Amino acid sequence: MKDFSTEITYKTSRSSGAGGQNVNKVETAVTAIWNVMESAMFTFDEKLRISEKLKNRINSEGLLQMTSSESRTQLANKKIVTEKMLELVEQALFIPKKRFKTKPSRGQVQKRLDNKKKLSDKKENRKFKF
């Protein structure tokens, strides 16, 4: 996991929610802003992968923005939003393994067919015969 937190800029704003009278005076909500394409930490291919995976979260200027107002303190919100952004980018860079098709073994196929035959015979025996 690459720590690109030095490239993130922060902006504060007034937070809604819990905080009592503090809410109207103190700027506790923190918005983290990161320019994906100008990052020095990632290769061009990694930047493209991040841009593709997170295209719904990246604005027209190429900035990835996230906001946190979960906590009552600015410092805690800054920590939360930084961790969320690092985790989000890490997930975007994850390349899943290619899945290849497998066949059921001959024994498994035979077992399934035998069970079907048993069930069929059981139901056939239930029929009323003259």
Score class of each variant (00 low, 15 high):
S15D: 02
I50C: 06
A40Q: 13
I58P: 05
N24E: 05
K53R: 13
K25H: 07
L54Y: 05
G19T: 08
S69R: 12
K47R: 11
F100A: 01
I95A: 12
K11P: 02
I80A: 08
V89D: 03
A92V: 10
L54R: 03
A40C: 07
S16A: 12
N56S: 13
V36I: 15
R99Q: 14
I50S: 02
F42I: 04
T28F: 01
S69M: 07
V26A: 10
S69P: 00
I95E: 15
L63S: 01
T102Y: 11
K11Q: 14
N59A: 06
K53G: 05
V81Q: 06
Q91C: 10
N77P: 04
K97M: 00
K79Y: 12
K84T: 02
A32G: 01
T28E: 05
K79L: 11
V30K: 03
N77I: 01
K84V: 04
L64A: 02
T12D: 08
N56D: 14
Q91K: 12
G20Q: 04
K103T: 10
L86V: 06
A32W: 01
S69C: 09
K97C: 00
I80G: 03
R99E: 13
Q91E: 14
K47V: 05
Q65E: 15
E27G: 00
G20I: 07
Q21F: 08
A76M: 12
K84M: 09
T67K: 15
A32C: 05
L63C: 08
I8Q: 03
A92Y: 03
G62H: 04
P96M: 08
K101C: 08
E83Q: 14
S68E: 06
F94E: 15
K101H: 11
A29K: 12
R57K: 15
K101M: 09
G20F: 07
A92G: 06
K103E: 11
K103R: 13
Q91W: 01
V30P: 06
I33K: 09
R14F: 11
K47Y: 03
N56M: 12
N59T: 09
N77K: 00
M66N: 09
V89S: 01
L63F: 14
A18V: 10
M85S: 06
F44E: 15
Q65F: 04
S71Q: 12
G62P: 06
K79E: 15
V36C: 03
S51W: 00
E70T: 11
F42M: 04
L75W: 01
K55P: 00
M66V: 12
E87S: 13
K47M: 11
T67S: 12
S51V: 03
Y10G: 04
L63D: 10
S60Q: 10
T102I: 13
N59Y: 08
G20A: 00
V26E: 11
